[in-house]
Design a protein around this nucleic acid. Structure first.
Length: 443
DNA sequence: ATTGCTCAATGG
């Protein structure tokens, strides 16, 4: 059950000596160029580059599945796994509570991140009278119901597309048509190829959650200097508290422009050579806006180790696993515990003279031809983004029921796996069965 | 789906 042993990927700058072990789906192997040329060249080869035998690996946790993986197998340290499991099961352990006493710092230093009243994390069952949002305390919030300690950025952008669909996706595993799956795989493959243009990937076996996060931290530590020396970095991890909920994500690409502005570039690949619809753009704009919001908070010191620990229930004292430790030392970081590394990341983020993100750019390209279909430069509207986030988080905190799409967006249901069972649709879209008749839309 | 019950994203 709880054994989370697995592998995660670490980003290694090109030119390192560590023999790169690429984590690639077998079917993606052909898409990996031998000398990492640009995307267009890659695509022109129609994914027919000879495979690299040593790269034959799947991307992530290889464990489950009928056929035993030839490559991996992390020695499964049961102790680690079970410790975690029990810690998680208890939800809010007294132990972790005691470590959050200095959370005031977080709050004080983060006026814009997390709203004022957000110190009211569900403190065990002590929050008998939660005034806000008239939430029924007998009913667990969606966050609790799904056992989520944090959300992904893409959870929120999916929520922007259709909240009801996102909810169904959490409840029921999505059923994808082969066509849809192929589109997603191609998209993932293109993104992977682009990532490999700027760095190699190496596997690191992890035993604990702390290890997995440590790898994320190592990636941040190695990417910041690259970025600051005018390099382009891809797949930069971000995390931070937003409206009382921890949001976790990965920025596609960051680089400085000729003018010295820090630009976020998000690539969206499309099956058909059409410009994206408004709804698609709206969702993608929201996604990159969230990235900026979180990244800015990180470099401004508003994302503290304490807040991360608070949400994730990670244990700073936990020693790093051998594999992770090896890579840390290889990177020149003299750290022993997970907490050490976390502090180092905090310092690196805040003391590297990283600016906030100046430009948000989204590029839509055709999967088959790599033709640019559209380029969107997003204006970051903080107020708007924030109010959207509040709206979405209100659902997660159990302060309101989920909503489906508005009538004019009903076309989205055409490709939705849950259309047949969708309660929102059954109610004719606007009426929400259990809610007061507030058919007014908020968007 | 690939795999989750947390190592996010892939697209419509």
């Amino acid at each position: 059950m709880g054994q989370k042993v697995g592998n995660v990927t670490i980003r290694v700058r090109s030119g390192e000596k560590a023999p790169p072990l690429y984590l690639i789906e077998p079917e993606l192997i052909n898409s990996i160029p031998p000398r990492r040329p640009g995307l267009s060249e890659l695509l022109s080869h129609h994914f027919s580059i000879p495979p690299f035998p040593e790269r034959r690996r799947r991307r992530i946790n290889e464990v489950p599945g009928p056929s035993p993986n030839p490559v991996q197998n992390f020695a499964m340290e049961d102790t680690g796994g079970k410790e975690m499991a029990s810690a998680e099961a208890s939800g809010f352990s007294d132990l972790s509570d005691s470590e959050f006493l200095d959370l005031e710092d977080t709050q004080e230093s983060s006026p814009s991140l997390g709203k004022p009243g957000s110190s009211e994390f569900p403190k065990s069952d002590k929050c008998i009278n939660l005034p806000k949002g008239k939430r029924d305390l007998d009913v667990p919030s969606p966050l609790e119901r799904f056992n989520l300690k944090y959300l992904y950025v893409t959870d929120l952008s999916t929520q922007n597309w259709c909240e009801q669909q996102m909810v169904y996706g959490k409840e029921i595993p999505d059923f994808l048509t082969p066509e849809k799956e192929a589109v997603l795989n191609t998209g993932a493959s293109i993104h992977l190829a682009r990532e490999l243009e700027v760095h190699d990937l190496v596997t690191v076996s992890v035993v604990t959650k702390e290890d997995a996060w440590a790898v994320k931290f190592l990636n941040i530590l190695s990417m910041i200097p690259t970025l600051q020396s005018e390099g382009c970095i891809r797949e930069f991890p971000v995390f931070g508290e937003v409206e009382g909920v921890l949001l976790v994500g990965v920025i596609d690409e960051l680089h400085y422009t000729d003018k010295g502005e820090l630009e976020l570039a998000e690539l969206k690949t499309r099956r058909r050579p059409m410009t994206p619809l408004k709804a698609q753009k709206r969702k993608d704009c929201f996604q990159v806006s969230l990235y900026k919001y979180i990244f800015d908070a990180m470099v401004q010191g508003k994302v503290t180790p304490a807040s991360l620990i608070h949400h994730t229930k990670l244990c700073p004292e936990k020693p790093l696993g051998p594999s992770v430790l090896r890579h840390a030392q290889q990177g020149g970081f003299s750290v022993k515990s997970f907490g050490d590394l976390m502090e180092l990341v905090f310092l690196s983020l805040t003391l590297s003279d990283l600016p906030v993100i100046d430009i948000l750019k989204i590029e839509y390209i055709h999967q088959e031809t790599a033709a640019v279909l559209d380029t969107e430069v997003v204006t970051f509207e903080e107020k708007e983004v924030k109010s959207k986030m509040q709206h979405y988080m209100a659902y997660w905190m159990g302060q309101r029921e989920p909503q489906g799409v508005d009538v004019e967006d009903a076309w989205k249901c055409r490709t939705c796996s849950y259309a047949d069972i969708c309660e929102w649709r059954k109610c004719g879209g606007q009426c929400s069965s259990t809610l007061e008749p507030q058919a007014k839309r908020t968007r």
